[in-house]
Computed example of a mutant assay.
Amino acid sequence: MNREAFTESLTKDGFPEAVVVTREANTEMDVHAHPFEAKALILEGEMHIRIGDSEQAYKVGDVFHLPANKPHSERYGPDGVTYLVGRK
């Protein structure tokens, strides 16, 4: 998905203005949860999100969607990751 289409989908789904997040290469975040729903588009690099026993890789152009309060862990690729995220 491209940035324009993603931004339009966020607006349609009632997300406020998106923010850009950058994470450093080869780092991780242990299991945690957010008090908000998140929908994000990968702009650069890659990340892996693990929910329970399942891990999904996300690369440039991919979108991930996490419900509020969903426990997950995150792992960032060798070039880190930059993503555009809407939170509500």
Rank of each mutant, 00 (worst) to 15 (best):
K88D: 13
L84A: 06
P78K: 13
P67G: 07
F64D: 07
L66A: 05
E37I: 11
K12M: 09
H32C: 02
G86D: 02
M1I: 12
R3I: 13
P67R: 09
L84P: 03
H72D: 03
T22C: 06
T7L: 14
F64S: 07
G86R: 02
G61S: 03
P71S: 07
A38Y: 10
I49W: 01
M1N: 06
L66F: 08
Y76P: 10
P35D: 04
L10E: 00
A25L: 05
F36M: 14
G77V: 03
A18M: 11
G14Y: 01
A33D: 14
H34F: 07
L41E: 00
Y58P: 09
H32L: 06
G77T: 01
H72I: 05
I49Y: 01
P35N: 07
E37C: 08
E55W: 10
K88N: 11
P16N: 02
Y76T: 10
V20W: 02
T7P: 04
E24T: 13
H48N: 13
K88Y: 10
E74I: 08
A5S: 15
G80C: 06
P35A: 01
N26E: 09
T11S: 12
S9M: 06
T82N: 06
A33W: 04
A18K: 11
P16A: 05
M29V: 12
Q56L: 14
P71L: 08
I42K: 01
E37L: 08
G52Q: 08
E37D: 14
A33M: 12
L66T: 05
A68M: 01
N26H: 04
D79L: 00
E4H: 05
K12H: 13
G52C: 07
V85H: 00
K39I: 06
R3W: 09
E4K: 04
E37Y: 14
E74P: 10
D53A: 15
D13T: 10
R87Y: 07
D30C: 13
D62Q: 10
N69S: 14
G86K: 01
H65Q: 04
V19K: 15
H32M: 08
L41P: 03
D13W: 04
M47Q: 11
R87S: 11
P16R: 05
